[in-house]
Amino acid sequence: MSDVTVDQGLDRVRRRRLIRLAAGLTAGAVVVAGGLFWLSGGWGAWRHDRALDSACDGTLAADPVRELSGGAEVTAETRLGRSFWQCMVSEVDDEEDGRIDLRVTISDARDHLASLEAARTDAPLGHGWTGGFAFDPDQERRGQATATVMLDCDGEADSGVVAEVRARIDRADFGRPEDRAGLTSVLTRTATAYARQTGCQATEGEPVRKVATSVNAWDYRPFASVSGSCAGIVDARTAARWGVRTVVETASGPKPVEGCTLGGLRGAPLYTFTASYGPALNWSERERLEDLTGRPTGDAADGRYVRWADCPGAAERAAYVVAPDDSELGRASDLVLDHTGLRTALSAFAERSAKAHGCTLTTAGAGAGTSAG
């Protein structure tokens, strides 16, 4: 055996020893790193984060929840009630992560107990959705907001689901457009996933990139600049005769509750128009308004009038009401009322809103309107 052959054999032995040593060091490093990851809480954070992907029967829109929570560790659970399904997200450690309370509640729109707490001042979601977003930019808690949506089931008459998300997330700021869009994404994606699981092929809108904020009584604008939910209700001559100088309106777009307030100087409310669809019209109010449909048409003492519409899907039925001044609170208005003009204005408001929802106005109160007082 030559010296060259011996040297090559020794080299191979040395290389195998080095490889085994390196492998041992690598394995040791992995064990140490894994131990550090475990002890530092990394495993727990990873486990909670991965659990979001299958949370609430796999319906929760996990990615926007992660963004809104700002990387905080959260947990999710499903709650079932007599008439609702709910996905609740909360923080693992509120002292470290800050308060996180996010709840998506979904009901069958046909359920007698289904309801939506929506307001005419909510901003429309737009982008093909029938929904609204409630965030008051003047409130102290910037991480608190509510959004609602109604979904129709394709191919099924008078069926759909209604959903609401309520959020209080200390790390979020719903004054930021991206956070409003994120919460809207949680709502729409979770609601449509739930609908599919329950056999409803929901009609979906487009991803929501931008959502406005709610309006308040002091967010009035000159009547001459009307362009949203108040547009086309009364003409300039009628407005002047009624003393209307300002409006409080939202952008146009289908919502569970739509509205417009015509006001005097400095926004003092004079006439309020409200459209309520399906579960957004609570049953006690619905029954009270329905009791009036059999009354003779004509001038109502307090100037309140109602129109009705039959609607497809989740909306089911809608009521359109005009209320002068504060008469919607049960007090008589001090205004000198133009009853014919009020009924005409209500019809214009109802026709435009009904068309946007695919609804058909009923003959009850047609033309003259129905007394709601």
Rank of each mutant, 00 (worst) to 15 (best):
K255G: 08
P222E: 10
T198L: 15
D111C: 01
L68R: 02
R307S: 04
S371P: 14
R196V: 13
D136G: 06
V6C: 12
A212I: 07
G182Q: 09
V186C: 04
A350H: 00
Q144L: 13
V208S: 00
R286T: 11
F223Q: 04
D152L: 03
G81Q: 01
P256Q: 06
G131L: 01
R352G: 06
P254T: 09
A22P: 09
G155P: 00
H339T: 09
D338Y: 04
Q197D: 13
L25V: 14
T274S: 05
A212C: 07
V165K: 02
L80W: 08
S276M: 10
I169E: 01
G155Q: 05
R141L: 12
V32S: 08
P312M: 03
G58P: 00
D235C: 08
D235Q: 03
A167M: 00
E140L: 07
I106W: 06
V31W: 11
A212D: 15
L18D: 14
T192P: 15
V215Q: 05
V336L: 09
A55Y: 02
R166Y: 07
V336H: 04
R12M: 10
L292C: 06
E96A: 13
S40E: 07
A319Q: 05
W43I: 09
C153G: 10
S252V: 09
G263D: 04
V336G: 12
D136H: 07
A368S: 15
S90Q: 07
C260Q: 00
A55M: 07
S333K: 02
D136N: 13
A62S: 06
T250G: 13
P254K: 03
N282V: 11
R295N: 12
S214Q: 08
V226D: 12
D63E: 14
R15P: 09
S83C: 13
T250C: 05
M88D: 15
C56K: 01
A319T: 01
A364D: 13
T75S: 11
T148R: 15
T78H: 09
R352D: 14
G35N: 05
G232P: 03
C153F: 03
A350C: 04
S69Y: 05
A240N: 11
W43N: 11
L18K: 12
T78R: 08
V162C: 03
V104T: 03
A345M: 01
V4K: 13
D299R: 15
M150Q: 12
R317T: 09
P177W: 06
T340L: 12
D158L: 14
R180A: 06
D326C: 13
S115P: 15
G182P: 11
S225P: 11
P177N: 10
I100G: 01
G70V: 00
G373C: 15
L265M: 12
P222M: 14
R307C: 01
